[in-house]
């Protein structure tokens, strides 16, 4: 198996035959024999030359001996490419960083906004957080409604 990977934002290459892997990043490489045991859903033990690694891997989050890594792996044979989506063309989606409740909507569609201007206030666990505009521009769309419950990542306002 050969894979491309992105680890904490850096491109890397990974190759394994099930008992031995080769890992390369920034011109450095390690090649090791290993054994892996799946202990419970999300929990793994990896042994490399007698060194023990405890790994927890749940929903895209990976921790090795407690240290978190942001890892993406891709099959290089697959076509891929990040879609620019709403982030392209100067459009910015303002999303809720946490699940919560919309307390106040401070802007309307068509409003001109300054960088840093408050757009929407979301509350969770007794803490209110004001979403601020990342740049100067115009409010294209307001999806947030006062008192509505929102999920993490849900788009509240679109700025152009």
């Amino acid at each position: 198996m050969k894979l491309d990977a992105k680890v904490d934002g850096l491109a890397a290459k990974f190759e394994s035959n099930g008992a031995r892997f080769r890992y390369e990043r920034n011109g450095e490489a390690v090649e090791r024999e290993y054994s892996i045991a799946a202990l419970a859903p999300g929990s793994f033990s990896v042994l490399i030359e007698g060194r023990s690694y405890s790994v927890v891997s749940v929903e895209g989050s990976i921790r090795v001996n407690g240290r978190p890594f942001a890892v993406e792996v891709f099959d290089p044979r697959e076509m891929r490419g990040h879609s620019a989506g709403a982030f392209g063309e100067g459009r910015r989606n303002i999303a809720s960083p946490m699940p919560g409740k919309v307390v106040r909507v401070l802007v309307s569609a068509g409003d001109a906004v300054e960088a840093g201007q408050g757009l929407v206030v979301v509350e969770a666990m007794k803490m209110q957080n004001e979403m601020k505009s990342p740049k100067a521009g115009k409010v294209v769309e307001v999806k947030a409604k006062a008192d509505a419950t929102v999920q993490a990542g849900e788009v509240l306002v679109v700025i152009e």
Binding site: M1, F21, R51
Partner: peptide, 26 residues
Amino acid sequence: LETEAVAVLVASLKQAKSPAPAPAKS
């Protein structure tokens, strides 16, 4: 590098299992 490689090793298991390779998103 070895610790980092272990993270990718475990991430690769999911890749191997999933029929349509999709980025294991952070």
